[in-house]
């Protein structure tokens, strides 16, 4: 992996990114992990649109490429799952702010997916124009609060 060259990901980097995403958001129930869901390309595209996110993605992928264990094994994907998690933990410790921002992007893309919405019970999609139903305010709930004498401090 050498993503810092030109600030773009190679095909090998993209395959590694998918595995990274599977480690971050693993499979659950009938859903595969975030990488196996095919979201790596969207992560890359969305990162490309926003400089701080692009920087975070490149920094994390660069840091992973420099991990010695991954080097020795022939790349991040060649590591065992346990080793991949260890490698990610090391990168997280080394570049915490960038890793956190990258992780936020991965989470955001994952939780934008309709199949994820269905699983977690979220109505999903745009919140406008439909909004949600909330009952109008009912004054009777103030019965206890109204018994309090005024206690604001006089000047």
């Amino acid at each position: 992996m050498s993503p810092s060259r030109g600030g773009r990901l190679s095909d090998a980097d993209r395959r590694a990114l998918a595995v990274v995403m599977d480690r971050l958001v693993p499979p659950v129930d009938e859903l595969p992990g975030a990488g196996e869901m095919g979201l790596a390309s969207e992560v890359e595209q969305r990162a490309r649109r926003h400089r701080p996110l692009r920087s975070a993605l490149i920094t994390v992928m660069d840091a992973l490429s420099m991990d010695m264990a991954a080097h020795a094994a022939g790349g991040f994907r060649a590591l065992s799952e346990e080793q991949q998690v260890d490698s990610l933990r090391q990168v997280e410790a080394a570049v915490p702010e960038q890793f956190a921002y990258f992780m936020q992007l991965v989470y955001t893309i994952y939780y934008m997916q309709p199949e994820v919405h269905e699983r977690i019970g979220w109505p999903g999609g745009a919140v406008q124009p439909d909004g949600f139903d909330v009952e109008p305010f009912d004054e009777s709930i103030l019965e206890t609060a109204r018994q309090r004498e005024p206690f604001w401090r006089r000047v």
């Binding site: 969305r46 996110l53 992007l105 999609g125 919140v127 406008q128």
Partner: peptide, 16 residues
Amino acid sequence: NYVTNNDDWEYRGLTD
């Protein structure tokens, strides 16, 4: 045109 009209509003809240 506010982003809450869009499916990707949570991404937009993270970025622009």
